[in-house]
Write a protein that binds this DNA or RNA. Structure first.
Lengths: 334, 334
DNA sequence: ATGAAAGCGCTAACAG
DNA sequence: CTGTTAGCGCTTTCAT
C-alpha cells in the first residue's frame, strides 16, 4: 500500500497536480465539474494528504506545544483537556511536554521550538526566571500561563492570585475561624506562593488580625504526603489554628486526611480551603471548599493570543487576567 | 532570524552539505579535524536541524500517537505519563488523542495515521468493534491496550481481568464479607465489564456462594456521581451487601462517599475494593483497597512491540499479559 | 481556470 | 573520507 500521492490522483482524474491540490484544499478557481471529477479520483484512490510534505512547503506545522510540570496533576490534566478542545477549534493539534518542575527541562522547552516541530508554545514555567525566558525565547510564539513574571515581550494569562487568596482567607474568617494557617511549599513555585501569602495576610490584616509567622506551615516536600506531614508537625510543635488555607487541592486533601487521622474534625475543629477545584474536591471526605480559576477562559484567552502571535502580531507582551470564584463545600461547613 | 540551513553551515565551514549532515547526525566517516571545524560553524550560526524536512526525507516522523478515552481520568493520565517516559527512551515523542468514548473518534484515530503525522498508534478503544478495527487498520503500526478483543493482526497488552477480579473478590471473602456486590457501568467498556464480572462470579462460586443478580449494581451513568447513586438506589430497593467490588477507583470513591453519607461505615459495614490504584486511593477517606495493574510493564511492553512493528515485523498479533497485584488499604480493614 | 516549473531543507545513493 | 545528484510530496509563483 505505497502511499498515494497528489500526482496519482491527478493522473487518474486527467488533470494537473495543481488542480488536485486546489480541490483538496477547497481553494476557489476550480470549476464544479472538475472538482467533482477530482473528488471521485480522490475517493477511489483513498488519497490523504501528507502533512509532513505540506508542512515543509508551507512552513506551518499545525501543532502547538503545551508545556507544564506534570500531566498527572489533576489540575494540569484539566488544562490539557481544555486546551485540546480549544486548539481543535483553530485546527491545531497539541503536543504535551512535561517539565517535572526542572529548570533544565523548562529551558529545553524554549530551545526545542527551533526543531520546527510546533508553531508556538503555551508554557507554565515554575523554575525558570524571567531573564532566562527572555533570553531563550527568540522569535518563538510564546504564551505563558500562571504567575511567573513574564518578560516584557511575552503574552501571559493568569488569575489574580492575591485577590483570590484574599477571598479564600476572608471566607474562612466569615465562617468564624480566627486563627488561620497557610500551607504551602516554596518548592512548587515561589512567586505564586508569595502572591497567595500576600493575599492571605492582607485579608487577615483587614480583619484586624496580625499574621502569625507560626501559622505559615512550610512543607518539606511538595507532595500530598508532605502536606499531611507539615500539618501534623505544626500540631506537634503546638501551633494552634482553626482554619487552614492550602496552596492547592491535593495539599488540602492530604492535610484533611492527616487532621482526621489525629482525631480532629473538618470542618468542626478546622475549616479547610483548597485551590484549583479539581474534580476530586467534590468526592473527598469531606468535600473541599476551594478557589476555582476559570480554566475555560484561561485556555481560550491563551489560544486567542497565540493565534494572534502566529499571525504575526509582534507587539509588547499582553497580560490578561481571567476570573475565579470560591466554591463552598463541606470542608468549611455545608 | 531566517532559519539557518545546512548549506549555510557548509558554506561557512567550507565543506560540503553532506559532511555537515554527517557531523550533525553523528555519523562516522568524518575526520576529527573536519568534525571540529563543522561543529564550530554550527555553534556560531546556531544551526538546528529542521525536523519537518528530515521527516519528509526519511519518512520517519519520530512521533507516536497515544489514543484513549480521557486524559482527565487519573488512570489514563498515569498511562500517559509513563508512556511519555517510555517513548523518550526510543527517541520518540507522543501525541495524545482523546476519544471521549466515541466510536466516531476512535474511527478517526485509525484513519488519521495516513496523515503521516505519526509512525504508530497505541490505542485503547472502548467502543469500536474488532471487525471495524481490522478494517481500518490498514498497514498502520498498531498496539492495543486493554480488554477489547483485538483483530488477529494486532498486538495487544492487558492484564488478566478475570483473574484479577477473582483476586479482588476473594480478598473481600477472606476478610469475612459474605454478600458481595459488583458495581459497574456497561457503558464504559462492556467486554471488560463482562470479564470482571466473570472473575467475580467465579470467586463466589469457589467459595460456595451462588452469585445473586440482585447484587449486580448497574450504574445509570458511568460517572463518579453515578456510582454513588447506584449504591444508594440498591440500598433503597432493599439490596443487602457487606462487600462491594467496583469497576474502577473513581466509582469506588463515589460509592464510599455515598455509603458514608447514608450512615454506613467503610469498612465496618461494607468493605470496598476498587481497580487501577490511582494516586487518590491513598488519600481518600478511607483509603481504598484496589487492584493495581502493572502500568510500567504495560507501557514498556507496548512500546517494545511498537518498535518491532515499526522496524518491520509484520507477523501475527501478539497478545501479552502483564501483572497486577492487590493493594490492601483501609477500605477493607487496615 | 488550469498547467509547468521551482523550490521548502534534508537524506541517501553513488561517485570520486 | 568527501562531494554531487536526486528526490521525499506538497505549495506556489508565473505563464497559458
Amino acid at each position: 500500500m505505497p502511499a498515494v500521492r497528489l500526482q496519482d490522483v491527478a493522473d487518474l482524474a486527467g488533470v494537473s497536480l495543481k488542480t488536485v491540490s486546489n480541490v483538496v484544499r477547497n481553494k476557489p478557481h476550480v470549476s464544479p465539474a472538475t472538482r467533482k471529477k477530482v473528488q471521485r479520483a480522490v475517493d477511489e484512490l483513498g488519497y490523504v494528504p501528507n502533512m509532513t510534505a505540506r508542512r515543509l512547503a508551507t512552513g506551518r506545522t499545525g501543532m502547538l506545544e503545551l508545556a507544564f510540570p506534570d500531566i498527572q496533576a489533576p489540575y494540569y490534566a484539566e488544562i490539557a483537556s481544555r486546551m485540546f478542545d480549544e486548539a481543535k477549534k483553530y485546527d491545531y493539534r497539541l503536543l504535551i511536554e512535561q517539565t517535572r518542575n526542572l529548570a533544565e527541562n523548562e529551558r529545553a522547552v524554549l530551545a526545542d521550538r527551533e526543531q520546527g516541530l510546533v508553531d508556538g508554545v503555551i508554557f507554565e514555567p515554575v523554575s525558570l526566571e524571567t531573564s532566562q525566558i527572555a533570553l531563550l525565547k527568540g522569535d518563538l510564539s510564546l504564551v505563558m500561563l500562571g504567575e511567573v513574571e513574564p518578560p516584557l515581550t511575552v503574552d501571559h494569562v493568569a488569575i489574580d492570585n492575591i485577590a483570590a487568596a484574599k477571598t479564600a482567607t476572608q471566607h474562612l474568617l466569615d465562617r468564624g475561624h480566627k486563627r488561620i494557617a497557610f500551607l504551602a511549599s516554596e518548592e512548587v513555585n515561589s512567586s505564586t506562593v508569595k502572591r497567595r501569602l500576600a493575599g492571605y495576610e492582607s485579608a487577615l490584616r483587614e480583619a484586624g488580625i496580625e499574621p502569625d509567622p507560626d501559622l505559615y506551615l512550610a512543607m518539606e516536600k511538595p507532595t500530598t504526603d508532605g502536606a499531611g506531614e507539615a500539618v501534623v508537625a505544626a500540631l506537634e510543635r503546638g501551633a494552634e489554628f482553626d482554619g487552614l488555607f492550602c496552596y492547592n487541592d491535593m495539599f488540602a486533601i492530604g492535610a484533611m486526611r492527616a487532621l482526621q487521622q489525629v482525631g480532629l474534625q473538618v470542618p468542626g475543629d478546622i475549616g479547610v480551603v483548597g485551590w484549583n477545584d479539581i474534580t476530586m474536591t467534590r468526592y473527598s471526605m469531606p468535600s473541599l471548599t476551594t478557589i476555582a480559576p476559570d480554566v475555560n477562559a484561561m485556555c481560550s484567552t491563551a489560544l486567542t493570543m497565540m493565534m494572534e502571535r502566529i499571525k504575526g502580531y509582534d507587539g509588547i507582551g499582553r497580560h490578561k487576567l481571567v476570573g475565579y470564584h470560591l466554591v463552598q463545600r463541606e470542608s468549611t461547613g455545608i
